[in-house]
Simulated scan of single mutants.
Amino acid sequence: MKNFKLTRYAPTPSGFLHLGNVYSFIMTYHLAKKHQAKILLRIDDLDKERVKNRYIQDIFDTLDFLELPYDIGPKNLKDFTANFSQNKRMAQYSKSLNVLKKSQLLFACDCSRNKMEKMHPKGYYTGFCRNKKLSLEQKETSWRLKADMHQDISIKDLNEGHIVGKLPGILTDFIVRRKDGLPAYQLTSVVDDLHFGVDLVVRGKDLFGSTLAQVFLSEHLDPNTFAQNTFYHHYLLQDPNNQKLSKSAGASSIQFMRKSGKKKEDIYRMIGEWLGVKEPIKSLEEFGRYV
């Protein structure tokens, strides 16, 4: 069995953490334990329109409440702001964007979300601006990386070894720099994992497309080891109505349940029930039997 150096919890503080987030943390914790990896807490905070300090604080509150440990990263909101915010790595993101710019693989796009929805029923990007030759310096344009949804991309899967996939339509010519000039998620995620030395990435199956996009992206940056990382895509936790959970202050948020008097044992038991586990699970360690 292969051992790894580092994996991570990587929440985006755009809402209160819910049971699905916690399930992903649980999987990460047990895979780290199984493969002798340390855990990094990596918080993605560049989306200023959605990210709020109360949501960042909720991450620390939730991890503390559920006694979910990690080895590297901020210990509280003040420590995060001072030492671990993505704003501290803007120079690295800019360097990677400049590498892409020199590669001639970028093009500027001024399409709005409304326009894309009109061009494709699912909102997929149809390459409208590929040949418009808009200047990358033009204001109010995003930078897109030329990426064909029909191209094969190989990744290393923890259980299946090397597997090949194709970019989903929603990630065709995906954005690497937003219209506001900030680096986009796919780029910051790659740069951050390389910066910290992550070599095992645990995430939900809904992010399999992002894995493909990020491996593709990494191969067009300065020489790096990202494509050699190992990935594990876990099943998504769904509510009793088989609906995917989303961030909200609703009934599945840990904050709501904590304020309603739930204990950590209640949270773990609920996750076990939603997973269909017959015997009640009351602790973090008991999930190890199912990973």
Rank of each mutant, 00 (worst) to 15 (best):
residue 283 S to Q: 10
residue 264 K to C: 03
residue 256 F to L: 07
residue 250 G to R: 01
residue 272 G to T: 12
residue 250 G to H: 01
residue 273 E to D: 14
residue 263 K to F: 12
residue 274 W to A: 06
residue 264 K to R: 15
residue 249 A to K: 10
residue 270 M to E: 13
residue 269 R to T: 07
residue 251 A to G: 01
residue 248 S to R: 04
residue 271 I to C: 04
residue 282 K to S: 13
residue 257 M to Q: 15
residue 252 S to A: 14
residue 274 W to N: 08
residue 268 Y to E: 01
residue 249 A to I: 06
residue 276 G to N: 08
residue 268 Y to S: 02
residue 271 I to P: 03
residue 250 G to E: 03
residue 256 F to Q: 13
residue 249 A to T: 10
residue 263 K to V: 14
residue 248 S to M: 01
residue 260 S to T: 08
residue 271 I to T: 12
residue 255 Q to G: 10
residue 265 E to W: 00
residue 267 I to C: 02
residue 278 K to Y: 04
residue 281 I to V: 15
residue 261 G to Q: 13
residue 254 I to A: 04
residue 265 E to G: 00
residue 277 V to H: 05
residue 264 K to F: 01
residue 259 K to D: 11
residue 277 V to Y: 11
residue 269 R to K: 12
residue 255 Q to C: 08
residue 259 K to E: 13
residue 260 S to L: 06
residue 248 S to F: 00
residue 256 F to K: 11
residue 257 M to K: 15
residue 267 I to E: 03
residue 255 Q to R: 15
residue 270 M to I: 09
residue 278 K to S: 14
residue 281 I to N: 01
residue 279 E to P: 06
residue 260 S to I: 02
residue 286 E to T: 15
residue 275 L to W: 09
residue 275 L to T: 10
residue 285 E to D: 14
residue 276 G to H: 08
residue 268 Y to K: 01
residue 253 S to Y: 00
residue 284 L to N: 06
residue 263 K to C: 11
residue 280 P to E: 05
residue 275 L to Q: 07
residue 283 S to N: 12
residue 263 K to N: 13
residue 284 L to D: 05
residue 272 G to N: 03
residue 254 I to C: 04
residue 285 E to T: 10
residue 261 G to I: 11
residue 286 E to H: 14
residue 250 G to A: 05
residue 284 L to W: 08
residue 273 E to W: 07
residue 257 M to W: 13
residue 278 K to A: 14
residue 259 K to A: 12
residue 262 K to Y: 08
residue 267 I to N: 01
residue 254 I to Y: 05
residue 250 G to Q: 01
residue 270 M to R: 11
residue 266 D to I: 07
residue 285 E to N: 11
residue 277 V to Q: 01
residue 266 D to W: 02
residue 285 E to C: 05
residue 255 Q to E: 10
residue 262 K to W: 09
residue 270 M to Q: 13
residue 256 F to Y: 14
residue 277 V to L: 12
residue 264 K to I: 06
residue 249 A to W: 00
residue 270 M to H: 09
residue 277 V to A: 00
residue 281 I to S: 03
residue 254 I to F: 05
residue 263 K to I: 12
residue 272 G to C: 03
residue 273 E to K: 15
residue 285 E to R: 07
